[in-house]
Design a protein around this nucleic acid. Structure first.
Lengths: 113, 113
DNA sequence: AGATTACATTCCCATATGGGAATATGTCAA
DNA sequence: TTGACATATTCCCATATGGGAATGTAATCT
């Protein structure tokens, strides 16, 4: 097997930096494709393709408005990623406190010098 | 350009499900490669390759113990992902409350039936 | 040194990109 | 209907997989 498809899940979809930018931009308000392309400095076909991936995994939703297609971020689809990363929260807190302890131990030995 | 390398950042590295499993397993305690392979039902070379990717982006740390290499998750490298997903938290809360409101509106109209 | 154990790397290959360019599809206005 | 505008899709291609198999490398033991 090769690498999993970008459309296989939200983790693969958001691995691409431009798709994260798009999600950031569309979180506050729905926007048409051309506006996204202009704002993020991308070609229209490129934006359409990224939106297709995001849509396939439910990260964005669309509605038509005349000739335009208005896309907006579906934040709920990001929640699973948040949950997964959250399970590591207590570990990085532990690690930070250890770093702190070591720093304090070092400053004490410096005092003794 | 093609797809970005899995080693380009943590987002790309954790897109692969087995790598997430490895990170989960190594969060509590450092483990040798063979143990990981056995526990997760993977081939040893496969585990070594995944660990190489995780190490390149700083998601795991290693130390030698005789013939073994002990890997452990570096939770701090996951924090940026947590931060990014966190920026969407208020949006999915809004969306959920909207769903709630609509549900309540519906139940009221049902009452009226 | 020679054998064994534990990992890492390399080679091969089917598969999936993402960008550029060109083209197709869909909608509205005159 | 014809033309213009807004998106979507297709084609081509360089690149990067991840798994399997084989091989390389490092550390330990006798």
């Amino acid at each position: 097997m090769a690498r999993a498809a970008t459309t296989s899940d939200a983790f693969n979809a958001v691995a691409e930096p431009r798709r994260r930018e798009i999600l950031n931009y569309l979180a506050l308000q729905a926007r048409p494709v051309g506006d996204i392309a202009l704002r993020l400095g991308l070609q229209q076909p490129s934006v359409s393709k990224h939106l297709r991936v995001l849509r396939d995994v439910g990260l964005v939703q669309v509605r038509r408005d005349g000739r335009q297609m208005l896309y907006r971020t579906n934040a709920q689809a990001i929640q699973p990623l948040h949950e997964w990363t959250k399970t590591f929260e207590r570990f990085w807190q532990h690690q930070l406190s250890r770093v702190k302890e070591r720093a304090e131990a070092r400053s004490k030995s410096v005092d003794r010098v």
